[in-house]
Design a protein around this nucleic acid. Structure first.
Lengths: 208, 208
DNA sequence: ACTATACGAAACGCAAGCGTTTCGGAAACG
DNA sequence: CGTTTCCGAAACGCTTGCGTTTCGTATAGT
């Protein structure tokens, strides 16, 4: 029950001689896991469901991973590629929007954030790892955009306040992702950028 | 398993003749439920644990409620008394801080917000009810403070932006409550007020 | 005092779900 | 072509936890 074992041999190695594992099935399984994670949450997610959704037998699942937590861990690890988005550079607002879209989409579904937070209670170390990676990435990007805005004549922000800003972004994304599921509506992202980020970054509201 | 039955007879009525139920045990049970809800989350919470923590037999639990979900529902219903706080009135900042403290404390523990969001996935109707009550309350209070600030000479806020502000407050409180547990640190509330609410409400940063 | 009821302790049935195993067959290697 | 490994289907053991029941005792109402 106690998953300290998450540090040990989470992924099972394939064999060497004879028929080789169909690696394309890994992707199918991961995708199915992400789908179900978004729909049912971590607790609601069932290995039997994953197998069924992936069109795969449960035996195949356990031939590649040792436990449910490991499959999910690998699945969420494929999210948030942490790639800086293609900034249009036309305005700070457009750049922020691009960042929020990149960060908010998490592949294609997004309510997974909620499931991740649910999972966090059971696997705190995994949660810390994920949010730390995510937070530092967001922070770095915001810092980049902030200094760029400062060069453009706006008041620069103190380092300290950037921390709070990162919290705000993460919290709002998690909130908008919400328990209801579904991807974050673009209008929410726009609201976030115009009514929160722009104000906090430049001290002035965006043109309506 | 499917709790549509939540609409029907959630609370069992006590008898009339003979020995009467010790009503003080209700409070003990509710308190134990809230404690465990914060510690273990909704899924981690066990009826056996609740009984043990309350110093009560499981039979007693099911003599009063019909299911785990019902106990938890009654428990969280005791939170958020939705009472407008005692506003000091010395400044907008102080008033906001008072509101955030009132709203953020949720009796004495606070990580229950996270557990509630976890529970939300299983009982969406309950979640909507709770957040709706909470949201309208926060919105009304913020509106009150906003117009008061407008009278004091600051720029008033549009109705539309207030919606986003409520989202922000709810999201940040949920975030600060976090999966780690423990009550929201006062410094987080201060940060929220100074770096987010004050800026969004008045367009200017509070004095450092 | 008598009775109806609450109470604690403990056991039970039951379902869900994780992880394992078996088996027959299919498919990739040499 | 034969061996090795993968694969799906299905069954199994096991644990957890919800909800129920029983029984002996304690206690409030009449």
């Amino acid at each position: 029950m106690n998953d300290q074992s998450i540090h040990h041999q989470r992924r099972l190695p394939p064999a060497e001689r004879g028929r080789s594992q169909d690696k394309s099935r890994d992707d199918v399984i991961i995708s199915a896991t992400l789908e179900l994670l978004g729909e049912k949450g971590y607790h609601g997610l069932t290995m039997t469901d994953v197998a069924a959704r992936a069109g795969v037998s449960k035996a195949t699942l356990y031939r590649r991973w040792t436990a449910k937590a490991d499959v999910v861990a690998d699945a969420v690890a494929t999210l948030n590629p942490m790639v800086p988005p293609q900034y249009p550079g036309t305005s700070l607002r457009d750049d922020l929007l691009a960042l929020m879209e990149q960060v908010g989409k998490c592949d294609n579904s997004s309510e997974i954030v909620t499931a991740t937070m649910e999972m966090a209670r059971l696997h705190p170390d995994l949660y810390r790892t994920l949010t730390a990676r995510f937070g530092t990435f967001v922070r770095a990007e915001l810092n980049k955009l902030s200094t760029r805005a400062a060069d453009a004549g706006h008041a620069p922000m103190a380092e300290v306040e950037l921390d709070g800003l990162v919290d705000t972004v993460v919290a709002l994304l998690a909130h908008y992702a919400g328990p209801a599921g579904a991807a974050i509506p673009r209008e929410h992202l726009i609201k976030l950028v115009d009514h929160v980020l722009m104000v906090l970054l430049t001290g002035s509201r965006a043109a309506e």
